[in-house]
């Protein structure tokens, strides 16, 4: 499971970084979203990966650490809000600057 998880994170981050280096706002926002997915998964994995563990000590053989789950929840909410904000801003940039280049200058 760890290997699969690590590969997924790697692919997500790599595609995210590639997209973020593009010149137009939409791929950049997509790339940003992929990177935040990767980060959220990474944060989740920091409580160690286990299946069937309750987040309470004594309830099951293994117990899952509840704190990273709480952290991830916060991080998801924040990154979701930020993504919405960036999307609105990029639409506004298209309207005001007349193109969707991140520098505001068409090629």
């Amino acid at each position: 499971m760890e290997l699969l998880f690590a590969i997924t994170l790697g692919v997500l981050t790599a595609s995210g970084v590639y997209l973020m280096l593009r010149g137009r706002t939409f791929p950049v926002v997509l790339g940003m979203t992929l990177v935040t997915y990767a980060v959220n998964l990474f944060l989740f994995a920091m409580g160690r990966l286990s299946t069937g563990g309750a987040p309470i000590i004594g309830q099951s053989q293994m117990y899952a650490d509840p704190l990273p789950q709480a952290l991830v929840l916060t991080a998801i909410v924040i990154s979701f809000a930020m993504t919405a904000f960036v999307l609105v801003l990029s639409i506004r940039a298209v309207c005001e600057l007349g193109n969707d280049h991140v520098d505001g200058e068409g090629q």
């Binding site: 980060v39 990474f42 944060l43 920091m46 952290l71 801003l89 520098d103």
Partner: peptide
């Protein structure tokens, strides 16, 4: 403002992601 704001926001969003990675580790 829109063009300066876009750079500022995108950079800081990436910064926040890195912050989370560091916190996670």
């Amino acid at each position: 403002r829109t063009s300066a704001g876009l750079h500022y926001i995108l950079l800081n969003l990436l910064g926040s992601s890195l912050f989370l990675v560091a916190v996670g580790v």
